[in-house]
């Protein structure tokens, strides 16, 4: 049987990296920015947060934090659709899922660029 070239390792690496980010970093931000600040457990002014987000290293961090989990979602959601039996539509599903993640990545870059 001829070995078929596959791009799976590429998408899987993004999926794996996104999974790490989603599991380890996202909960921290949910706690800080989703609970602690809105509920007044701690106070960080908008100006300070904005200044922080303007730092190049923080931008890089935010980029990884936002973009990588998009690929985690795309890979997982693609597999869910395939497992539901939509295997005849494998290519369009892959394009839609990863395309959405790429769009999200571009949007993230654009927003970070504006800060």
């Amino acid at each position: 049987m001829a070995t078929r070239k596959t791009s799976e390792p590429f998408w899987w690496l993004l999926f794996a990296a996104g999974g790490m980010v989603a599991a380890l970093l996202v909960p921290v931000h949910l706690l800080v920015h989703g609970l602690a600040v809105p509920l007044g457990w701690t106070s960080i002014s908008h100006a300070r947060m904005l200044a922080l987000a303007g730092h190049p290293l923080v931008k890089l961090y935010l980029f990884a934090l936002i973009a990588l989990p998009l690929y985690h979602w795309a890979h997982r959601f693609r597999f869910i659709l395939e497992d539901l039996g939509l295997r005849g539509l494998r290519t369009p599903i892959a394009i839609l899922c990863y395309g959405a993640a790429v769009l999200g990545t571009v949007a993230t870059l654009w927003v970070l660029w504006q800060i």
Partner: peptide, 16 residues
């Protein structure tokens, strides 16, 4: 490795 790294090798698995 060539057998495992095929599209129908390990990559086909959807983590069920």
């Amino acid at each position: 490795e060539p057998v495992l790294s095929e599209a129908v090798g390990v990559w086909e698995c959807t983590f069920v």
